[in-house]
Simulated scan of single mutants.
Amino acid sequence: MTTNKIILGVLAAAAAGTIIGLLFAPEDGDNTRKKIKKKTNTLASDLIDALEKSKEKATETAENIKEEGKAYKDAAVNKAEEYKDTAKEEINKF
């Protein structure tokens, strides 16, 4: 979550800086608007890429947690079976 905020902050600052720089640039309006559009599209593309990477990482982490939980469950079931078998052995001794 923190990484996403940092990425968004950096992209927002870059966009703001670019727009301010272009607005004060000594070029005509058409060129300035084209540059703003191009830079905005680039920043949007970068943001989408960053969000997709974050989504992939979140999915991977969720899968790892799921697998780890399954391993704990399996270990608990095996341990319960051991206790059950031991208890049966002890009962059969009497």
Rank of each mutant, 00 (worst) to 15 (best):
M1N: 11
E89G: 09
T3R: 13
E27Y: 14
P26A: 03
T61F: 06
K88I: 12
A14D: 11
N78V: 02
I7N: 13
A75N: 07
G29S: 05
L22V: 10
I19G: 03
G21D: 04
E82Q: 11
L22M: 03
E60Y: 05
A75R: 10
T59I: 12
T18Y: 04
A76I: 12
I91E: 00
S45F: 12
A15N: 07
T86E: 04
K55H: 03
R33M: 09
N92P: 02
G29A: 10
A15M: 08
E67Q: 13
T86C: 01
D85R: 11
T61V: 10
A12S: 13
D28L: 00
A62V: 07
E27L: 13
I65K: 12
K66W: 08
I20M: 11
E27F: 15
A58E: 02
G29Q: 05
K57A: 06
F94H: 04
A76H: 09
K57R: 07
A14S: 08
D74N: 08
L23E: 15
K84S: 04
D49C: 01
D49Y: 07
N4L: 15
E67W: 01
A12E: 11
D30Q: 05
K88V: 08
K35I: 03
N31P: 02
K66I: 07
T86R: 02
D30Y: 12
A58N: 06
T3F: 15
T3H: 12
A44I: 04
G21Q: 02
T3N: 14
E52H: 03
E67N: 15
M1E: 14
Y83H: 07
K70L: 12
N4R: 12
S54Q: 07
A62C: 03
Y72H: 13
I6W: 06
D85H: 00
G21C: 03
A80M: 09
K88H: 01
E89W: 07
K53T: 08
K88L: 05
I65E: 06
N4W: 06
A87F: 09
A76K: 08
K35T: 01
K70R: 14
N92Q: 04
A16Q: 13
S45W: 06
E90V: 05
A14M: 02
T61M: 10
A87L: 03
K39P: 00
N4P: 02
A13R: 07
G69S: 14
E67M: 05
Y83V: 04
G21R: 00
A62H: 00
A15I: 04
A58G: 00
A50V: 00
A75G: 05
A50P: 06
E27S: 10
V77N: 08
I7D: 15
A87W: 10
